[in-house]
Design a protein around this nucleic acid. Structure first.
Lengths: 221, 221
DNA sequence: GTACAATATGACCGTTTAGTCATTTTCCTG
DNA sequence: CAGGAAAATGACTAAACGGTCATATTGTAC
Protein backbone atom coordinates (compact mmCIF):
# COMPACT_ATOMS: atom_id res chain seq x y z
CA UNK A 1 0.00 0.00 0.00
CA UNK A 2 1.24 3.50 -0.81
CA UNK A 3 2.34 5.63 2.18
CA UNK A 4 0.17 8.26 3.80
CA UNK A 5 2.57 10.80 2.33
CA UNK A 6 1.34 9.81 -1.09
CA UNK A 7 -2.30 10.23 -0.15
CA UNK A 8 -1.55 13.63 1.43
CA UNK A 9 -0.32 14.85 -1.93
CA UNK A 10 -2.41 17.44 -3.77
CA UNK A 11 -4.70 15.53 -6.10
CA UNK A 12 -3.18 17.03 -9.24
CA UNK A 13 0.27 15.76 -8.40
CA UNK A 14 -1.04 12.37 -7.41
CA UNK A 15 -2.82 12.13 -10.72
CA UNK A 16 0.32 13.01 -12.64
CA UNK A 17 2.20 10.21 -10.93
CA UNK A 18 -0.61 7.72 -11.44
CA UNK A 19 -0.94 8.68 -15.08
CA UNK A 20 2.75 8.16 -15.71
CA UNK A 21 2.61 4.80 -13.95
CA UNK A 22 -0.42 3.69 -15.94
CA UNK A 23 1.20 4.63 -19.22
CA UNK A 24 4.36 2.71 -18.38
CA UNK A 25 2.61 -0.41 -17.11
CA UNK A 26 0.23 -0.47 -20.08
CA UNK A 27 3.10 -0.14 -22.53
CA UNK A 28 5.52 -2.65 -21.03
CA UNK A 29 3.68 -4.79 -18.50
CA UNK A 30 4.76 -5.14 -14.90
CA UNK A 31 8.08 -6.82 -15.53
CA UNK A 32 9.05 -4.56 -18.39
CA UNK A 33 8.03 -1.32 -16.72
CA UNK A 34 10.82 0.83 -15.30
CA UNK A 35 10.72 2.93 -12.16
CA UNK A 36 13.13 5.37 -13.80
CA UNK A 37 10.77 5.84 -16.72
CA UNK A 38 7.87 6.45 -14.37
CA UNK A 39 9.60 9.09 -12.25
CA UNK A 40 10.90 10.76 -15.41
CA UNK A 41 7.41 10.71 -16.92
CA UNK A 42 5.92 12.14 -13.74
CA UNK A 43 8.66 14.73 -13.30
CA UNK A 44 9.47 13.75 -9.74
CA UNK A 45 12.70 12.70 -8.07
CA UNK A 46 13.58 9.09 -7.58
CA UNK A 47 13.71 9.60 -3.84
CA UNK A 48 10.19 10.97 -3.80
CA UNK A 49 8.92 7.86 -5.52
CA UNK A 50 10.25 5.70 -2.72
CA UNK A 51 8.63 7.94 -0.14
CA UNK A 52 5.31 7.15 -1.80
CA UNK A 53 5.71 3.48 -2.64
CA UNK A 54 7.59 0.63 -1.02
CA UNK A 55 8.61 -0.69 -4.42
CA UNK A 56 7.44 -1.23 -7.97
CA UNK A 57 5.01 -3.96 -6.97
CA UNK A 58 3.43 -1.64 -4.43
CA UNK A 59 2.71 0.91 -7.15
CA UNK A 60 1.35 -1.79 -9.43
CA UNK A 61 -1.12 -2.96 -6.83
CA UNK A 62 -2.24 0.62 -6.39
CA UNK A 63 -2.80 0.90 -10.14
CA UNK A 64 -4.97 -2.22 -10.00
CA UNK A 65 -7.14 -0.56 -7.38
CA UNK A 66 -7.47 2.42 -9.71
CA UNK A 67 -8.76 0.00 -12.32
CA UNK A 68 -11.36 -1.28 -9.90
CA UNK A 69 -12.36 2.22 -8.88
CA UNK A 70 -12.72 3.40 -12.46
CA UNK A 71 -14.88 0.43 -13.31
CA UNK A 72 -17.08 1.05 -10.34
CA UNK A 73 -17.56 4.64 -11.37
CA UNK A 74 -18.38 3.63 -14.92
CA UNK A 75 -20.83 1.07 -13.63
CA UNK A 76 -22.71 3.65 -11.63
CA UNK A 77 -22.87 5.93 -14.66
CA UNK A 78 -24.75 3.30 -16.63
CA UNK A 79 -28.46 2.77 -16.07
CA UNK A 80 -29.08 -0.56 -14.33
CA UNK A 81 -30.80 -3.37 -16.16
CA UNK A 82 -34.54 -3.31 -16.19
CA UNK A 83 -34.97 -6.88 -15.07
CA UNK A 84 -32.29 -7.63 -12.53
CA UNK A 85 -33.24 -11.30 -12.40
CA UNK A 86 -32.52 -11.88 -16.07
CA UNK A 87 -28.98 -13.19 -16.24
CA UNK A 88 -28.58 -12.36 -19.90
CA UNK A 89 -29.76 -8.81 -19.46
CA UNK A 90 -27.15 -8.46 -16.75
CA UNK A 91 -24.45 -10.04 -18.91
CA UNK A 92 -25.28 -7.58 -21.67
CA UNK A 93 -25.01 -4.72 -19.21
CA UNK A 94 -21.66 -6.05 -18.03
CA UNK A 95 -20.24 -6.27 -21.53
CA UNK A 96 -21.53 -2.80 -22.26
CA UNK A 97 -19.66 -1.51 -19.25
CA UNK A 98 -16.50 -3.33 -20.34
CA UNK A 99 -16.77 -1.78 -23.77
CA UNK A 100 -17.17 1.66 -22.27
CA UNK A 101 -14.19 0.97 -20.03
CA UNK A 102 -12.08 -0.02 -23.01
CA UNK A 103 -13.13 3.13 -24.86
CA UNK A 104 -12.53 5.55 -22.04
CA UNK A 105 -9.55 3.90 -20.36
CA UNK A 106 -7.74 1.79 -22.93
CA UNK A 107 -4.54 1.77 -20.87
CA UNK A 108 -6.27 0.62 -17.71
CA UNK A 109 -8.03 -2.05 -19.72
CA UNK A 110 -4.75 -3.26 -21.14
CA UNK A 111 -3.27 -3.50 -17.67
CA UNK A 112 -6.23 -5.51 -16.49
CA UNK A 113 -6.04 -7.91 -19.42
CA UNK A 114 -2.39 -8.48 -18.62
CA UNK A 115 -3.21 -9.15 -15.00
CA UNK A 116 -5.95 -11.56 -16.07
CA UNK A 117 -3.46 -13.53 -18.14
CA UNK A 118 -0.95 -13.65 -15.30
CA UNK A 119 -3.44 -14.68 -12.63
CA UNK A 120 -7.02 -15.17 -13.76
CA UNK A 121 -8.25 -15.78 -10.25
CA UNK A 122 -6.85 -12.63 -8.68
CA UNK A 123 -9.88 -11.13 -6.94
CA UNK A 124 -8.68 -7.66 -7.89
CA UNK A 125 -9.31 -8.51 -11.54
CA UNK A 126 -12.92 -8.29 -12.62
CA UNK A 127 -14.49 -10.78 -14.93
CA UNK A 128 -12.53 -13.74 -13.67
CA UNK A 129 -13.89 -17.27 -13.81
CA UNK A 130 -15.00 -17.17 -10.21
CA UNK A 131 -17.07 -14.08 -10.82
CA UNK A 132 -18.86 -15.54 -13.79
CA UNK A 133 -19.28 -18.88 -12.10
CA UNK A 134 -21.17 -17.28 -9.23
CA UNK A 135 -23.27 -15.43 -11.75
CA UNK A 136 -24.07 -18.51 -13.76
CA UNK A 137 -24.84 -20.58 -10.71
CA UNK A 138 -27.44 -18.00 -9.81
CA UNK A 139 -28.71 -18.33 -13.36
CA UNK A 140 -29.13 -22.03 -12.84
CA UNK A 141 -31.18 -21.34 -9.76
CA UNK A 142 -33.29 -18.82 -11.62
CA UNK A 143 -33.66 -21.28 -14.49
CA UNK A 144 -32.28 -18.91 -17.09
CA UNK A 145 -29.56 -21.34 -18.05
CA UNK A 146 -29.85 -24.51 -20.04
CA UNK A 147 -29.46 -27.33 -17.53
CA UNK A 148 -26.81 -29.18 -19.51
CA UNK A 149 -24.38 -26.26 -19.29
CA UNK A 150 -21.25 -26.85 -17.23
CA UNK A 151 -21.18 -23.58 -15.32
CA UNK A 152 -17.46 -23.58 -14.54
CA UNK A 153 -16.69 -24.20 -18.18
CA UNK A 154 -19.14 -21.54 -19.28
CA UNK A 155 -17.63 -19.14 -16.76
CA UNK A 156 -14.26 -19.53 -18.42
CA UNK A 157 -15.77 -19.07 -21.85
CA UNK A 158 -17.32 -15.84 -20.66
CA UNK A 159 -14.07 -14.74 -19.03
CA UNK A 160 -12.16 -15.32 -22.21
CA UNK A 161 -14.68 -13.43 -24.28
CA UNK A 162 -14.89 -10.67 -21.71
CA UNK A 163 -11.18 -9.94 -21.82
CA UNK A 164 -10.67 -10.46 -25.52
CA UNK A 165 -13.60 -8.54 -26.86
CA UNK A 166 -12.80 -4.96 -25.95
CA UNK A 167 -9.71 -5.02 -28.12
CA UNK A 168 -11.90 -5.91 -31.06
CA UNK A 169 -14.98 -3.82 -30.48
CA UNK A 170 -13.16 -0.51 -30.15
CA UNK A 171 -11.64 -0.46 -33.64
CA UNK A 172 -14.90 -1.87 -34.95
CA UNK A 173 -16.71 1.23 -33.78
CA UNK A 174 -14.41 3.33 -35.97
CA UNK A 175 -15.47 6.97 -36.08
CA UNK A 176 -18.37 6.44 -33.71
CA UNK A 177 -15.99 5.76 -30.86
CA UNK A 178 -15.01 9.39 -30.46
CA UNK A 179 -18.51 10.54 -29.57
CA UNK A 180 -18.83 7.88 -26.89
CA UNK A 181 -15.41 8.63 -25.46
CA UNK A 182 -16.01 12.35 -25.14
CA UNK A 183 -19.48 11.67 -23.79
CA UNK A 184 -21.53 13.56 -26.36
CA UNK A 185 -23.39 10.33 -27.15
CA UNK A 186 -24.11 7.89 -24.33
CA UNK A 187 -23.13 4.35 -25.23
CA UNK A 188 -26.67 3.23 -24.51
CA UNK A 189 -27.85 5.25 -27.47
CA UNK A 190 -25.09 4.61 -29.96
CA UNK A 191 -26.73 2.38 -32.59
CA UNK A 192 -23.61 0.58 -33.78
CA UNK A 193 -22.42 -0.20 -30.26
CA UNK A 194 -25.86 -1.48 -29.31
CA UNK A 195 -26.11 -3.57 -32.44
CA UNK A 196 -22.74 -5.17 -31.73
CA UNK A 197 -23.79 -5.93 -28.18
CA UNK A 198 -27.05 -7.41 -29.44
CA UNK A 199 -25.16 -9.63 -31.80
CA UNK A 200 -22.78 -10.70 -29.09
CA UNK A 201 -25.63 -11.66 -26.83
CA UNK A 202 -27.26 -13.62 -29.62
CA UNK A 203 -24.08 -15.60 -29.99
CA UNK A 204 -23.80 -16.23 -26.27
CA UNK A 205 -27.44 -17.05 -25.83
CA UNK A 206 -28.33 -18.84 -29.00
CA UNK A 207 -24.92 -20.02 -30.07
CA UNK A 208 -23.47 -20.04 -33.52
CA UNK A 209 -25.34 -22.86 -35.16
CA UNK A 210 -28.11 -22.40 -37.61
CA UNK A 211 -30.29 -24.84 -35.75
CA UNK A 212 -28.98 -25.77 -32.31
CA UNK A 213 -31.96 -27.98 -31.58
CA UNK A 214 -31.18 -30.24 -34.49
CA UNK A 215 -27.42 -30.11 -33.99
CA UNK A 216 -27.76 -31.19 -30.40
CA UNK A 217 -28.67 -34.68 -31.56
CA UNK A 218 -25.07 -35.07 -32.65
CA UNK A 219 -23.80 -34.27 -29.17
CA UNK A 220 -26.36 -35.72 -26.78
CA UNK A 221 -25.70 -35.12 -23.12
CA UNK B 1 16.29 -15.15 -38.22
CA UNK B 2 18.93 -17.18 -36.40
CA UNK B 3 22.29 -17.55 -38.14
CA UNK B 4 23.32 -20.60 -40.15
CA UNK B 5 25.77 -21.29 -37.35
CA UNK B 6 22.84 -21.98 -35.09
CA UNK B 7 21.22 -24.38 -37.51
CA UNK B 8 24.54 -26.18 -38.01
CA UNK B 9 24.61 -26.98 -34.30
CA UNK B 10 24.08 -30.59 -33.27
CA UNK B 11 20.40 -31.01 -32.56
CA UNK B 12 20.92 -31.81 -28.89
CA UNK B 13 22.69 -28.53 -28.23
CA UNK B 14 20.15 -26.58 -30.25
CA UNK B 15 17.40 -28.16 -28.20
CA UNK B 16 19.11 -27.22 -24.95
CA UNK B 17 19.28 -23.59 -26.02
CA UNK B 18 15.70 -23.55 -27.26
CA UNK B 19 14.49 -25.16 -24.06
CA UNK B 20 16.22 -22.58 -21.91
CA UNK B 21 14.78 -19.78 -24.04
CA UNK B 22 11.28 -21.22 -23.86
CA UNK B 23 11.45 -21.53 -20.10
CA UNK B 24 12.62 -17.94 -19.70
CA UNK B 25 10.09 -16.43 -22.10
CA UNK B 26 7.24 -18.43 -20.60
CA UNK B 27 8.17 -17.33 -17.10
CA UNK B 28 8.80 -13.64 -17.72
CA UNK B 29 7.40 -12.71 -21.13
CA UNK B 30 9.45 -11.10 -23.84
CA UNK B 31 10.24 -7.85 -22.03
CA UNK B 32 10.99 -9.48 -18.74
CA UNK B 33 13.13 -12.27 -20.13
CA UNK B 34 16.91 -11.91 -19.78
CA UNK B 35 19.56 -12.99 -22.23
CA UNK B 36 21.89 -13.64 -19.31
CA UNK B 37 19.39 -16.00 -17.75
CA UNK B 38 18.97 -17.85 -21.03
CA UNK B 39 22.68 -18.37 -21.65
CA UNK B 40 23.15 -19.42 -18.03
CA UNK B 41 20.23 -21.84 -18.33
CA UNK B 42 21.61 -23.27 -21.55
CA UNK B 43 25.18 -23.43 -20.25
CA UNK B 44 26.67 -21.53 -23.17
CA UNK B 45 28.80 -18.41 -23.34
CA UNK B 46 27.30 -15.02 -23.93
CA UNK B 47 29.38 -14.62 -27.07
CA UNK B 48 28.02 -17.85 -28.51
CA UNK B 49 24.49 -16.60 -28.07
CA UNK B 50 25.22 -13.60 -30.26
CA UNK B 51 26.75 -15.83 -32.91
CA UNK B 52 23.39 -17.59 -33.09
CA UNK B 53 20.95 -14.73 -32.76
CA UNK B 54 21.07 -11.10 -33.77
CA UNK B 55 19.38 -10.08 -30.53
CA UNK B 56 16.71 -11.07 -28.04
CA UNK B 57 13.88 -10.34 -30.48
CA UNK B 58 15.47 -12.62 -33.04
CA UNK B 59 15.42 -15.49 -30.60
CA UNK B 60 11.83 -14.75 -29.63
CA UNK B 61 10.68 -14.91 -33.22
CA UNK B 62 12.42 -18.24 -33.54
CA UNK B 63 10.59 -19.51 -30.47
CA UNK B 64 7.30 -18.48 -32.08
CA UNK B 65 8.14 -20.62 -35.09
CA UNK B 66 8.79 -23.51 -32.73
CA UNK B 67 5.27 -22.97 -31.40
CA UNK B 68 3.89 -23.20 -34.91
CA UNK B 69 5.93 -26.28 -35.68
CA UNK B 70 4.86 -28.07 -32.53
CA UNK B 71 1.22 -27.31 -33.23
CA UNK B 72 1.53 -28.63 -36.73
CA UNK B 73 3.06 -31.83 -35.46
CA UNK B 74 0.31 -32.22 -32.86
CA UNK B 75 -2.30 -31.58 -35.53
CA UNK B 76 -0.97 -34.35 -37.70
CA UNK B 77 -1.00 -36.72 -34.75
CA UNK B 78 -4.74 -36.27 -34.29
CA UNK B 79 -7.17 -38.09 -36.54
CA UNK B 80 -8.86 -35.64 -38.91
CA UNK B 81 -12.55 -34.90 -38.55
CA UNK B 82 -14.92 -37.30 -40.20
CA UNK B 83 -16.92 -34.66 -42.00
CA UNK B 84 -14.55 -31.96 -43.15
CA UNK B 85 -17.38 -29.76 -44.33
CA UNK B 86 -18.95 -29.49 -40.87
CA UNK B 87 -17.57 -26.33 -39.35
CA UNK B 88 -18.45 -27.34 -35.81
CA UNK B 89 -16.79 -30.69 -36.13
CA UNK B 90 -13.69 -28.86 -37.26
CA UNK B 91 -13.92 -26.36 -34.41
CA UNK B 92 -14.17 -29.21 -31.97
CA UNK B 93 -11.10 -30.79 -33.51
CA UNK B 94 -9.26 -27.47 -33.25
CA UNK B 95 -10.07 -27.05 -29.58
CA UNK B 96 -9.05 -30.62 -28.93
CA UNK B 97 -5.69 -29.90 -30.50
CA UNK B 98 -5.33 -26.74 -28.44
CA UNK B 99 -6.08 -28.68 -25.28
CA UNK B 100 -3.49 -31.29 -26.20
CA UNK B 101 -1.03 -28.50 -26.93
CA UNK B 102 -1.62 -26.97 -23.53
CA UNK B 103 -1.16 -30.33 -21.86
CA UNK B 104 2.01 -31.30 -23.67
CA UNK B 105 3.62 -27.90 -24.08
CA UNK B 106 2.31 -25.61 -21.35
CA UNK B 107 5.25 -23.24 -21.71
CA UNK B 108 4.84 -22.88 -25.46
CA UNK B 109 1.13 -22.30 -24.93
CA UNK B 110 1.83 -19.58 -22.40
CA UNK B 111 4.18 -17.86 -24.80
CA UNK B 112 1.56 -17.98 -27.51
CA UNK B 113 -1.13 -16.55 -25.26
CA UNK B 114 1.18 -13.69 -24.39
CA UNK B 115 1.88 -13.06 -28.05
CA UNK B 116 -1.85 -13.12 -28.76
CA UNK B 117 -2.44 -10.46 -26.15
CA UNK B 118 0.34 -8.29 -27.50
CA UNK B 119 -0.65 -8.57 -31.14
CA UNK B 120 -3.75 -10.65 -31.86
CA UNK B 121 -3.34 -10.30 -35.61
CA UNK B 122 0.24 -11.55 -35.80
CA UNK B 123 0.05 -14.26 -38.46
CA UNK B 124 2.56 -16.33 -36.51
CA UNK B 125 -0.02 -16.74 -33.74
CA UNK B 126 -2.64 -19.37 -34.40
CA UNK B 127 -6.27 -18.88 -33.51
CA UNK B 128 -6.30 -15.18 -34.25
CA UNK B 129 -9.44 -13.35 -35.35
CA UNK B 130 -8.44 -13.51 -38.99
CA UNK B 131 -8.10 -17.27 -38.86
CA UNK B 132 -11.51 -17.78 -37.31
CA UNK B 133 -13.09 -15.23 -39.57
CA UNK B 134 -12.00 -17.13 -42.65
CA UNK B 135 -13.31 -20.28 -41.06
CA UNK B 136 -16.66 -18.79 -40.21
CA UNK B 137 -17.06 -17.16 -43.57
CA UNK B 138 -16.69 -20.61 -45.08
CA UNK B 139 -19.28 -21.77 -42.62
CA UNK B 140 -21.66 -19.13 -43.88
CA UNK B 141 -21.16 -20.39 -47.40
CA UNK B 142 -21.78 -23.94 -46.27
CA UNK B 143 -24.83 -22.81 -44.36
CA UNK B 144 -23.66 -24.20 -41.06
CA UNK B 145 -23.86 -20.81 -39.41
CA UNK B 146 -26.94 -18.94 -38.32
CA UNK B 147 -27.34 -16.14 -40.84
CA UNK B 148 -27.69 -13.40 -38.23
CA UNK B 149 -24.21 -14.06 -36.83
CA UNK B 150 -21.66 -11.30 -37.33
CA UNK B 151 -18.69 -13.41 -38.41
CA UNK B 152 -15.97 -10.94 -37.41
CA UNK B 153 -17.52 -10.62 -33.99
CA UNK B 154 -17.90 -14.36 -33.66
CA UNK B 155 -14.30 -14.80 -34.78
CA UNK B 156 -13.16 -12.68 -31.86
CA UNK B 157 -15.38 -14.57 -29.48
CA UNK B 158 -13.80 -17.80 -30.66
CA UNK B 159 -10.31 -16.30 -30.43
CA UNK B 160 -10.93 -15.22 -26.86
CA UNK B 161 -12.27 -18.60 -25.87
CA UNK B 162 -9.50 -20.38 -27.74
CA UNK B 163 -6.75 -18.63 -25.85
CA UNK B 164 -8.44 -18.58 -22.46
CA UNK B 165 -9.68 -22.11 -22.28
CA UNK B 166 -6.52 -24.14 -22.11
CA UNK B 167 -5.57 -22.55 -18.82
CA UNK B 168 -8.85 -23.76 -17.40
CA UNK B 169 -9.23 -27.18 -18.96
CA UNK B 170 -5.85 -28.49 -17.86
CA UNK B 171 -6.42 -28.19 -14.11
CA UNK B 172 -9.96 -29.38 -14.68
CA UNK B 173 -8.65 -32.67 -15.99
CA UNK B 174 -6.86 -33.22 -12.68
CA UNK B 175 -5.31 -36.66 -12.46
CA UNK B 176 -6.43 -37.68 -15.92
CA UNK B 177 -4.06 -35.16 -17.43
CA UNK B 178 -0.97 -37.25 -16.74
CA UNK B 179 -2.08 -40.15 -18.91
CA UNK B 180 -2.74 -37.87 -21.87
CA UNK B 181 0.54 -36.06 -21.44
CA UNK B 182 2.64 -39.18 -21.36
CA UNK B 183 0.62 -40.60 -24.23
CA UNK B 184 -0.66 -43.78 -22.59
CA UNK B 185 -4.22 -42.62 -23.27
CA UNK B 186 -4.94 -40.71 -26.49
CA UNK B 187 -6.92 -37.58 -25.84
CA UNK B 188 -9.56 -38.80 -28.27
CA UNK B 189 -10.36 -41.60 -25.87
CA UNK B 190 -10.15 -39.82 -22.55
CA UNK B 191 -13.76 -39.62 -21.37
CA UNK B 192 -13.46 -36.49 -19.23
CA UNK B 193 -11.61 -34.54 -21.90
CA UNK B 194 -14.15 -35.56 -24.51
CA UNK B 195 -17.03 -34.68 -22.24
CA UNK B 196 -15.58 -31.24 -21.60
CA UNK B 197 -15.11 -30.69 -25.31
CA UNK B 198 -18.67 -31.81 -25.93
CA UNK B 199 -19.95 -29.37 -23.39
CA UNK B 200 -17.87 -26.58 -24.86
CA UNK B 201 -19.27 -27.25 -28.31
CA UNK B 202 -22.77 -27.27 -26.94
CA UNK B 203 -22.18 -23.82 -25.50
CA UNK B 204 -20.71 -22.51 -28.73
CA UNK B 205 -23.34 -24.09 -30.91
CA UNK B 206 -26.45 -23.84 -28.84
CA UNK B 207 -25.50 -20.99 -26.57
CA UNK B 208 -26.15 -20.68 -22.89
CA UNK B 209 -29.85 -20.01 -22.79
CA UNK B 210 -32.43 -22.52 -21.80
CA UNK B 211 -34.56 -21.68 -24.79
CA UNK B 212 -32.75 -19.55 -27.37
CA UNK B 213 -35.70 -19.55 -29.72
CA UNK B 214 -37.93 -17.88 -27.18
CA UNK B 215 -35.23 -15.58 -25.86
CA UNK B 216 -34.49 -14.29 -29.32
CA UNK B 217 -37.75 -12.38 -29.24
CA UNK B 218 -36.19 -10.08 -26.71
CA UNK B 219 -33.32 -9.30 -29.07
CA UNK B 220 -34.81 -9.34 -32.54
CA UNK B 221 -32.37 -8.81 -35.36
C1' DG C 1 11.14 34.63 13.67
C1' DT C 2 12.02 30.02 15.45
C1' DA C 3 11.64 25.33 15.78
C1' DC C 4 10.18 21.11 14.27
C1' DA C 5 8.09 17.88 11.24
C1' DA C 6 6.87 16.63 6.58
C1' DT C 7 8.31 16.40 2.11
C1' DA C 8 11.46 16.67 -1.86
C1' DT C 9 15.77 15.79 -3.87
C1' DG C 10 19.45 13.70 -6.88
C1' DA C 11 23.90 11.80 -6.21
C1' DC C 12 25.07 7.43 -5.30
C1' DC C 13 25.01 2.18 -4.43
C1' DG C 14 25.67 -2.49 -6.07
C1' DT C 15 23.67 -5.24 -9.54
C1' DT C 16 22.09 -6.40 -13.91
C1' DT C 17 21.21 -5.38 -18.59
C1' DA C 18 21.91 -6.17 -23.82
C1' DG C 19 25.46 -6.38 -26.65
C1' DT C 20 30.78 -6.46 -28.40
C1' DC C 21 35.10 -8.40 -29.61
C1' DA C 22 39.86 -10.04 -29.45
C1' DT C 23 41.38 -14.38 -28.49
C1' DT C 24 41.24 -19.41 -28.21
C1' DT C 25 39.52 -23.84 -29.26
C1' DT C 26 37.51 -27.11 -32.32
C1' DC C 27 36.78 -29.07 -36.67
C1' DC C 28 37.49 -30.28 -41.34
C1' DT C 29 40.36 -30.69 -45.53
C1' DG C 30 44.42 -31.74 -48.01
C1' DC D 1 50.56 -32.93 -39.58
C1' DA D 2 49.50 -28.30 -41.51
C1' DG D 3 46.49 -24.72 -42.33
C1' DG D 4 42.45 -22.34 -42.69
C1' DA D 5 37.66 -21.92 -41.62
C1' DA D 6 34.03 -22.32 -38.15
C1' DA D 7 32.67 -22.03 -33.66
C1' DA D 8 33.23 -21.01 -28.67
C1' DT D 9 34.62 -18.06 -25.17
C1' DG D 10 34.30 -14.70 -21.17
C1' DA D 11 36.21 -10.36 -20.04
C1' DC D 12 34.53 -6.12 -21.15
C1' DT D 13 31.56 -1.98 -22.16
C1' DA D 14 28.13 1.63 -21.40
C1' DA D 15 23.78 2.04 -19.97
C1' DA D 16 19.95 0.99 -17.13
C1' DC D 17 18.10 -1.29 -13.27
C1' DG D 18 15.69 -1.03 -8.47
C1' DG D 19 16.60 0.95 -4.39
C1' DT D 20 19.04 4.05 -0.51
C1' DC D 21 20.13 8.04 2.04
C1' DA D 22 22.17 12.30 3.71
C1' DT D 23 20.86 16.72 2.73
C1' DA D 24 17.84 20.58 1.34
C1' DT D 25 13.47 22.59 0.97
C1' DT D 26 8.92 23.43 2.34
C1' DG D 27 4.91 23.86 5.42
C1' DT D 28 3.03 24.50 9.99
C1' DA D 29 2.60 25.92 14.81
C1' DC D 30 3.86 28.94 18.27
Amino acid sequence: MPSTTFFNLPEAKRTIIETAAIREFAAHGFEGAGVNAIVAGAGIAKGSFYQYFADKADLFQHVLTLVQRKKLSLASSLPPTANSRDIFAYLRWLFQMELLFELREPELARIEHHAYLQEPDNPRVMGGPEYFNDLLTQGLLHEDLAPYVDTLLAANVLGGVFHALGRYLVPRLEDRAAAIIEGSVPITEEPLAQSLLDNLMEILEAGLARDPAIRKEFFPK
